[in-house]
Design a protein around this nucleic acid. Structure first.
Length: 230
DNA sequence: GCAAAGATTTGCT
DNA sequence: GCAAATCTTTGCC
């Protein structure tokens, strides 16, 4: 895969909000054939953040959140979808950035194949005919939709919980970050799918996205306040 | 040991 | 706009 410059780990070691913003425009690489531009992220900050997995304290699942910036934290949600996080903050302080959407740059066909493989693995109730229909749906899906949403990002890049602990800043790693151009502007909104969290956490404006990208996820794509460049 | 809920996606009403 | 699919993690008894 082409080699953009490595992603500077120190950008993830400071304020988690700044770390999240700095990940917009970075390149997510999956060797040997896939790459895309990160266009939507959310910050999850510390044990007090009632939406953050660190709120339970250190457990077997979330322990890498304390391992320092640049490490991958992948968890299974709703029994079906893996979600990729980049651990941020120095070691001993837990925080992570959820990668919610990636705009494909290379490996479109490989991403379609990976999405279908994920469906095969997880949808036990689906017969062959249903899987054929899913293959056709993926074939017709516009490339910017292939990794739009956290579950779709992991599926398209063949990332799952076994990738937890991987160093995403290792320039030789099979799954890694590479440097990229920041967006011209950054959209901001509350985080998605965390109604269970109390205030003020539920309303914290900690979702960041590139308003110009067609890959931003959900109904709220492009919604939220637009702020100047990050 | 068991019940409940979840940082989602998709399809159907 | 609502619910299903699926299974791990957490919390409580």
């Amino acid at each position: 895969m082409s080699t953009a410059g490595p992603f500077d780990r120190s950008r993830l070691a400071g304020d988690p909000i700044q770390a999240a913003r700095s990940l917009l425009g970075a390149i997510l690489v999956r060797e040997p054939d896939r790459a895309g531009r990160i266009v939507e992220v959310e910050a999850y900050v510390g044990v007090e953040d009632e939406a953050c997995h660190a709120r339970f304290g250190r457990t077997e699942r979330n322990r890498v959140l304390w391992d320092g910036p640049g490490i991958a934290y992948v968890y299974l949600v709703y029994g079906m979808y893996d979600c990729l996080n980049v651990v941020v903050e120095p070691a001993n302080r837990p925080a992570a950035v959820l990668v919610r959407a990636v705009e494909p740059l290379a490996g479109i066909d490989a991403m379609r194949a990976a999405r279908l493989a994920h469906a095969r693995a997880r949808r036990r109730a689906w017969g062959d005919d249903r899987l054929r229909a899913e293959a056709a749906r993926l074939d017709g899906l516009d490339p910017p939709r292939l990794a739009s949403g956290p579950g779709a990002v992991a599926a398209a890049f063949s990332i799952d919980r076994t990738d937890t602990g991987r160093d995403l800043c290792d320039p030789g790693g099979p799954v890694r970050l590479a440097a990229g151009d920041p967006p011209a502007s950054i959209g901001v909104s509350p985080r998605i799918g965390i109604a269970y969290a109390g205030e003020p956490w539920r309303s914290k404006p900690w979702r960041f996205f590139d308003p110009s990208s067609p890959a931003v996820s959900g109904r709220s794509a492009g919604s939220g306040r637009r702020v100047r460049r990050g």
